[in-house]
């Protein structure tokens, strides 16, 4: 369903991605792990067309998206849901307006059905009765969950999560993991998750890929990643300060 071939991007002299190759099948969950600043968010932004690569190709259901014009690209990106690392809620809109943004534009649902879907999605992420609050009235964790409700509201085929559990307490984080698994089973969505949280990664992933120095240095099912012989992977998944990965 998603195929990334030899993806390269540099910002000035900084070569962030140096030949990424990835494949994600329909209904599969891929977790991308890697240090902060290793280019994980840059990779996810390429998948949705927010960044054009210097070199390489990205296929979504066989359609190469890196050279599409805006309108054609938007038809593809409407199939995506993206949870941003910083939530990116529209601060001039209420929670309900944020969650219903995609529904109002790209579905034929009636006003009542949209309202129902908004309530249903907010309930899914454990938030009720906050429809009329503004984003600035919410805590960081609540914003994250509203962002998640917005990303899944119009039932996308592909959901991209940029650090879904960051800033959320462990119990809520585990509830979000359960929600990710539930979305996958109920809606058969393909999922790409970026996280540092290895507990979460092991729980939700069908595959884990480690991004290091602009390349995928290891890819496999969680059990394979745990047993990896690569010292870089071992240092990262065990969270050790000492090892081959430079500290800063």
């Amino acid at each position: 369903m998603i195929r990334v071939i030899d993806l390269h991007i540099a910002f000035g002299q900084n070569k962030v991605l140096r030949g990424i190759n990835l494949t994600l099948k329909k209904g599969e969950t891929l977790v991308v792990i890697g240090q902060s600043g290793s280019g994980k968010s840059v990779l996810i932004r390429h998948l949705i067309g927010l960044i054009k690569p210097d070199k390489g190709e990205i296929y979504i259901d066989g359609v190469e998206i890196t050279r599409l014009k805006d309108d054609e690209l938007h038809k593809i990106t409407r199939r995506f849901g993206l949870l941003f690392q910083g939530t990116a809620l529209f601060d001039s809109m209420t929670v309900a307006q944020n969650v219903s943004f995609g529904l109002e534009r790209y579905t034929d649902l009636s006003r009542e059905e949209i309202q129902e879907r908004v309530n249903e999605n907010l309930a899914l992420v454990g938030l009720r009765g906050i429809e009329n609050l503004m984003p600035h009235e919410l805590s960081g964790g609540m914003k994250k969950r509203v962002g998640l409700a917005r990303a899944i509201a119009y039932r996308p085929d592909i959901i991209l999560y940029d650090e879904p559990s960051t800033g959320i307490d462990p119990i809520r984080a585990d509830a979000i993991n359960d929600l990710i698994i539930r979305m996958k089973h109920e809606l058969n969505v393909s999922t790409v998750i970026i996280t540092h949280d290895m507990t979460s990664a092991y729980k939700v992933a069908d595959k884990i890929a480690m991004l290091y120095a602009g390349r995928i240095i290891e890819e496999g099912v969680p059990a394979d990643i745990k047993k990896s012989q690569n010292p870089v992977v071992q240092q990262f998944i065990r969270g050790r300060a000492k090892g081959p990965i430079a500290k800063w």
Partner: peptide, 15 residues
């Protein structure tokens, strides 16, 4: 605050 990226990701053309 990435809201323009969010618009794009929700299929809205920022222009």
């Amino acid at each position: 605050t990435e809201q323009i990226d969010a618009l794009f990701s929700l299929g809205a053309n920022p222009i």
